[in-house]
Amino acid sequence: MRRVGYFCTFTPKELIKAAGFTPVRILTGNQHVSLANAHLQNYCCSQVRGSLERLLRGELDIDAAVFTRTCDSLMRLADIWERNSNMLVHNLEFPTKIDGRSREFLIRELYDFKSKLEEWRGKEITSEDLKSSIELYSYLEGLLDEIFRIKPDYELILRAQTEDAEEVLREAEKKVRELRDLKGERGEQKDARVLVTGSVCPAVDVLSLIEEAGFSIVDDLCTGTRFFKSDVESRDVNSMEEAMEFLAEKYLRKAPCPTKSYDGDWRFKYILERVKEVDAVIFLLLKFCEPHFFDYPQLKKELEKMGKKTLLLELEFPIVSYEQLKTRLEAFYEMVV
């Protein structure tokens, strides 16, 4: 057993890695759903249906799957997955309500997850294993953060989620060096900056279309910034206890996601703060994604109050018409500049 799949960015991949597995994020594929139709209704989002399709087609080279509490669809997918594969399945109950109570409960869940991984691996996770895994990801995430501040690299971040972190590290280092070298000489900032906020988007071409329309992207996607960004700075951990506490804090303060409910409506505040540096906002939402679509109308209203133009792109994977997206993006660009 080598590779452990996961869906949600709230999954503590550091633990998976520390157990000696490669954490691999499972994302929807490029094929239309056919086999999954027998297991899931068509009003389920294409990330969940598409991932199941890949499982049923035998495309996934993983031995176990972790379902971190996210949304109702993923919650149900766990059992469907288990019944239709030979994979080991674990569900990690990440709190939905993020407040003072969450930390202790999450730490308990992290220990349970650790035991499960040890059982799968047949070997104990030491505090040294976890420490080095935490350091590895902190370093990689630091690089990704720097890259995304300058110019999001969606190919790279997809690799960071689906390949071994150590492999991607060198690539990320190279990219950072390139960007640092370029930075001084290219006043290449385009005239319109746009915050792209939304669900998963493994189709890199969609992001390219946004750039080709003339925008430079500030990212808030589940497969972008939200994969690596947390408010909690990396720190030295010297025992299992410290490591688990650090992980709990890190993930509780991960860039806010609409599947969580935050004290003081943190997600709205976070987005409204981030849009100060942009001219417009694109909502890149997966059709049927309830958490995002519930936030959308009120968030849009707040953004409009701030004078920001917004565009809603509702996606279903695989994308049928890039041409249509292109036309809408071009029209939106004209409106913004």
Partner: peptide, 27 residues
Amino acid sequence: NTVVKWYEVLSRMFKVPLFILDVPFVR
């Protein structure tokens, strides 16, 4: 989890406090 989002919307609409009782899923 739909109700969490729905009640967040209500809480913003009515500007009243929201208490969420967060219950883990019993798989």
